[in-house]
Amino acid sequence: MTILQWTWILTGLSFALYIYIAYAARAKSTGDFYVAEKSVPPFMNGMATGADWMSAASFISMAGLISFLGRDGSYYLMGWTGGYVLLAMLFGPYLRKYGKFTIPQFIGDRYYSNTARVIALVCAIFVSFTYVAGQMRGVGVVFSRFMDVSIDTGRDHRHGAGLLLRHAGRDEGDYLHPGRAVRRSDHRLSDPGDLRLHAVHR
């Protein structure tokens, strides 16, 4: 067997495993969806969120952008990471106290306004698209090298598999991130007694 055949087989097997984990530990409610019914210790939850962000967008696209732009790329670096400080100080504690999962939910309730909720939602969609654009390209590059196909085909393969995973798990998480999978599969084993509310920003 050639290296390429082995690559296809191993990639297929690992996708099958991820789909199985996603299906076996699928989310049953909104609370389950975002914070695993608060049954996971905050530290684990933080690790899962951290792992979620270690994606193609940050590893490949951000690194590529910075090496391509040279010193000017520092703006992205500082903006990308500086945003976490704003989130932690201006949003995190209040999301947590309101018991909300997403910023649009929180803004709509806090300001008693559906208009504000919609504006926050539109902002969130824009942020997601910006993020996903980098991720799609990064994933396409990785898979094209890996499976010896064009970048577009690689991207399509990856996201076809992603679609399956999402339907199997009915979860917002991306099961290609090990932290998420661990969190999902772990939360059924842990004690649901610990109800510390731990809001996760998305």
């Binding site: 010193r71 520092s74 670096l77 500082m78 990471t81 500086g82």
Partner: peptide, 8 residues
């Protein structure tokens, strides 16, 4: 250094 490591 500030832009690439110190600030982070």
């Amino acid at each position: 250094w500030f832009a690439n490591q110190g600030s982070l």
